[in-house]
Design a protein around this nucleic acid. Structure first.
Lengths: 154, 154
DNA sequence: CCAATCAGGACCCAACCGGTCCTGTTACGG
DNA sequence: CCGTAACAGGACCGGTTGGGTCCTGATTGG
């Protein structure tokens, strides 16, 4: 249940990687192929995710040669809710949440008419309280952290 | 995002209807066709949902002639989380939550290894705090409440 | 004994998601 | 000034999964 798309998962991975950018290294931006190599996520998918994130302003992009992506804000200022909303669309568990009044065919007797709203709100709040920084800190013991290498393909 | 299946929505509708059972009327159980007629949800779908709910013990069933379904517990004792878990399976946002260690192909560098757990837990808690009774009370002004009639089909 | 109703499958269709690719457009660097 | 590297933003296609229907038992009341 509550299946959120794999793309969202990738988005988190990519953004965390974006934050782990070489401390004071050459460029302050990272390219799609670079991130793909570092994370193991297929390159086209990385590009797609990055483009989506850039469209919503979660990351900023630098076009042209020597271009790349960069975090718009530090990890601890980015709630998971924003990432999810950016990739998967707005937080909404069921089809008839608010906007679409024309949806319900049996509108007269639909007993949940907007009833999921408190649930949505509760989840929204829960998700807004967790930032990407929290996700980086938590879980995974440091011993499992890999420095980021490996060409991913073959 | 966070798309939960339409079946879950139906489940809530059906269970609320099950609770709105005629106060002290003829049978204390309701049949699938009856609920379908009252809610507008297609009858086979209602039957399917009811069977699933019965399998998880959220509703009890009476077989044979004059049989039907009945709530196992009052609405205010049933958190939405239980309904969701019953219909849509366990609460898990991403594929690699805990059990499956063989999932991650690029296991060595998967940077979110179990990182969604706190998020899952937060949602789980949020969902456990809301009961079906809350959903019935909230939203929808009483003026929109319909007594339940209409054969649904034509 | 018959009819009504639940039980539990199998099954099919459609929508959506994941993933790839292609064609601009921008800007750095020589 | 030109070539190249990288983002932008589509279109597109295939696989998976959920939504929905139906059929065949099993059970119980009249």
């Amino acid at each position: 249940m509550l299946r959120l798309s794999k793309l969202t998962d990738y988005a988190v991975v990519v953004m965390v990687r974006l934050a782990e950018v070489s401390p004071g290294s050459n460029p302050d931006v990272q390219t799609s192929p670079g991130i793909a190599a570092a994370t193991g996520v297929p390159e086209p998918t990385v590009a797609k995710v990055l483009k989506t994130l850039a469209a919503t302003g979660l990351v900023t992009s630098q076009r042209g040669a020597r271009g790349g992506y960069r975090l718009a804000r530090p990890l601890h200022e980015i709630p998971v809710a924003e990432v999810i909303a950016a990739v998967d669309g707005p937080i909404a568990l069921v089809a008839c949440v608010d906007g679409s009044a024309t949806e319900c065919e049996s509108q007269g007797l639909c007993p949940v008419r907007g009833r999921w709203d408190p649930v949505n709100d509760a989840i929204e709040r829960a998700l807004s309280g967790i930032t990407l920084a929290d996700m980086r800190e938590a879980a995974v013991p440091p011993m499992f952290r890999v420095p980021a290498f490996l060409p991913a393909a073959e």
